[in-house]
C-alpha cells in the first residue's frame, strides 16, 4: 500500500538564458509515494496556479522513459537516482523519505542554454545529427531487407547503441560538458551495420567537427556519462568513435 511523505522541494527558476536564476522553495505535504516525480511536480504546479503564481516549467512528454524530453537534475544526479537507470519520468516518490530536501536543477551546460526554469535548448543535438547521423538512402525500393545478412551479435550491439534517447543526461553529468557519449552512440550504431559502413569515415569526421563547433567539451574519460545514462550506453562506444575518427583522419 502506498504511504504518504512530506518533504521540501527546491526548484530552479530562471527567466531566459540571460537571467541569473534562483531557487524557490516549497513544502510538499502528504504526497503518495506511488506518484511519479513528474506527477509530484504536477501537484506542485497545481498548488502554484491555485496561489495565482506561474507554474514551474520543465520539459516532459511521453512519461514512459522513451521520448528523451525530460531533463531534470535531481539531488545532484541527472534524472535522479533509480534502481536500473531510468529517466525522470520513471522516478517514483518511494525513492525519497519523509523530511528530505529535494533539489531540482536544469541541465547546466554552455551548449544547452536555459529557455525557462528547467527547460533547456538541446537543438545542438539535432545539429550534430544533421551533420552526418544518417545513412544516405533514397526513399524508394531498395534491395530486399534480407539481401545483406547481419550476424545477430552485430545487430544486437547496433541496437544497444541505437537505444540512446538523446536526453542529454551525459552532457549534464560531464564535468567537461562533453557530448561524446551521444555522438559515439549514433556513430557506433551505423559503424556496426554494413549499411552504415560506406559513409562511416565521413560520418565520424562530420559529427565530431559539428560537436566541437557547437562548444561541447573534450572527453576525459571520467565515465560520469555512462553512470547516469538512462539507457545504459557504454563508453565502449566512445572508444569506437575515437577509432573511427582516428582511422578516418589518418586515411586522409
Amino acid at each position: 500500500m502506498a504511504k504518504n511523505i512530506s518533504f521540501t522541494i527546491k526548484y530552479w527558476k530562471q527567466n531566459g538564458p540571460k537571467d541569473k536564476g534562483h531557487f524557490e522553495q516549497r513544502e510538499m505535504k502528504n504526497i503518495p509515494d506511488d506518484t511519479s516525480f513528474l506527477e509530484m511536480l504536477d501537484i506542485l504546479n497545481e498548488e502554484l496556479i491555485n496561489d495565482g503564481k506561474e507554474p514551474f516549467v520543465f520539459d516532459h512528454d511521453c512519461r514512459e522513459g522513451i521520448c528523451g524530453m525530460c531533463s531534470l537534475y535531481i539531488n545532484g544526479t541527472p534524472h535522479g537516482k533509480t534502481a536500473t537507470g531510468a529517466t525522470t519520468c520513471q522516478l517514483y516518490m518511494r525513492r525519497f523519505n519523509d523530511g528530505d530536501v529535494i533539489t531540482v536543477e536544469p541541465w547546466r551546460s554552455a551548449a544547452f542554454p536555459v529557455i525557462k526554469d528547467c527547460m533547456v535548448d538541446r537543438s545542438a543535438f539535432d545539429k550534430i545529427q544533421a551533420a552526418g547521423g544518417y545513412v544516405t538512402v533514397r526513399t524508394g525500393q531498395p534491395q530486399d531487407a534480407n539481401a545483406i545478412l547481419i550476424p545477430k551479435q552485430d545487430a544486437d550491439e547496433a541496437m544497444d547503441c541505437a537505444t540512446c534517447i538523446g536526453c542529454g543526461a551525459c552532457v549534464a553529468a560531464c564535468k567537461n560538458g562533453s557530448a561524446m557519449l551521444y555522438v559515439s552512440s549514433k556513430v557506433s550504431q551505423f559503424a556496426l551495420l554494413p549499411q552504415g559502413r560506406p559513409e562511416a569515415a565521413k560520418r565520424a569526421k562530420a559529427m565530431v567537427a559539428k560537436m566541437d563547433e557547437l562548444g561541447f567539451g573534450n572527453c576525459t574519460n571520467t565515465r560520469a556519462c555512462e553512470a547516469v545514462c538512462p539507457k545504459n550506453e557504454s563508453i565502449a562506444n566512445i572508444a569506437r568513435l575515437n577509432r573511427e575518427f582516428i582511422k578516418a583522419k589518418l586515411a586522409d
Partner: peptide, 13 residues
C-alpha cells in the same frame, strides 16, 4: 522494411 533496413534500423535478427 526494405527501406528501414537500408537506413540502418537495427531490427532483431
Amino acid at each position: 522494411i526494405d527501406q528501414c533496413v537500408a537506413q540502418g534500423v537495427p531490427f532483431a535478427r
